[in-house]
Design a binder for these strands. Structure first.
Lengths: 210, 210
DNA sequence: AATCTTACCGATCGATCGGTCGCTATTGAC
DNA sequence: GTCAATAGCGACCGATCGATCGGTAAGATT
């Protein structure tokens, strides 16, 4: 049986990360285990660890990978929309769709990881905190544009909008995974639409998971 | 050195639980460890485990203890208020105060535990899910009363109110512990007041941690 | 006073944790 | 054709995990 070629190393690296992200979304970043990862991938523990060095580096790479998925699923689809309320609504749409399609098997990775690490100092927590701050800043920026364009009531605090959107997403995630409430994304979408003050009921498509 | 008297067993039991709740709010219910608990309490692992039998029973007892604290801090203070919007506002007040006073050192225990266990079957998850359902039902009941008394707009879905209040609390908890945002309870209180449609700005007291 | 109950300890169990080591097999560059 | 670089393995490390064991000392019961 031939050994894996050097060119396959990147593929192995990606496979480990993919499995790691799924595992961590269910078991948590700390519950994630090198041995479990090795068993699932039919590798040795040393083979897995060789790609990252330490568990903390593995955790960081896992967080970065999950962040990329979140950005692709929620941020990117909304970039074609015009800045301001239109883009906030597009983000809300993509966000609820993302939560409804179970992109991560254990629920929203960012919410789970943030809640798990919000009390422990370290690089993982810092990475999560910075990512969440950046995301909130993105939301607040469009909220600010919406206020300036008078798409939102004058005097609206952009940070209140960002906070509210994030909170609703966390609530949807909990309702969906703790209670198995399949209608949670719809409820969240209604709440978001109310908060963003869309006067006409905009029809929203909830894509199915293929 | 005299052995502990039998009458002290209940006190020991309570001391273990108290430490367990604090530990679990930081490290998580799974990160909670018998050995760590024993070290902190200057007991043997066997002595700690003897009170609960298995780790799962310890986790369940810890959840029940934390639930009692949450009820005492958030539910009880609002029971003197009249049913309907007044009580919802009282709950909102107590809830934000609870989050601002860091009743649990690692943030809201229920949020952390629910997020940690929402993907793993078992009795702990069931207990958490049932508790959250009951709490949401309590909120929805007062919301229903408020709608009936026309304190909230006709046609308001009581479950939307319960969902929204819970989501805001989760958002406040994250902002406070992931970002160290001390003003998060105030922001949450503003959001809650807006959602509950309090027309006059009601002054809210944020008690200090003694 | 004799006996039972029980809270707790110290020792120990097998399993698993993250991590290190030397080694092999293969590749890509020369 | 030769050789350095490296992906990955297998064995192993000390530490710690949850859990079990027999033993001990105190209180409660009689």
């Amino acid at each position: 049986m031939p050994r894996r070629s050097v060119a396959d190393a990147a593929r192995t690296h990606a496979a480990i990360l993919e499995r790691s992200i799924d595992l961590a979304s269910v078991e948590g970043l700390e519950g994630l285990t090198i041995g479990r990862l090795a068993t699932d991938l039919q590798m040795s523990k040393a083979g897995v660890l060789g790609h990252f060095g330490t568990k903390e580096e593995l955790q960081l790479a896992t967080v970065r990978g999950a962040l990329a998925i979140f950005a692709r699923e929620v941020w990117e689809p909304a970039q074609e929309a015009a800045p301001g309320r239109a883009r906030l609504l597009a983000i809300a749409d993509a966000w609820m769709s993302y939560l409804g399609r179970d992109v991560f098997p254990g629920g929203c990775f960012m919410t789970a990881a943030s809640t798990e690490f919000d009390g422990r100092p370290g690089r993982v927590r810092d990475t999560l905190a910075r990512a969440n701050e950046r995301w909130m800043a993105v939301l607040a920026a469009d909220a600010r544009a919406a206020v300036k364009a008078e798409e939102l009531p004058r005097g609206t605090d952009p940070q209140d909008i960002a906070f509210g959107m994030n909170a609703i997403a966390m609530g949807v995630n909990q309702a969906r995974h703790l209670h198995g409430d399949a209608s949670a994304p719809d409820r969240g979408w209604r709440a978001l639409r109310t908060m963003l003050g869309a006067p006409r009921a905009r029809r929203r498509a909830l894509p199915r998971n293929p």
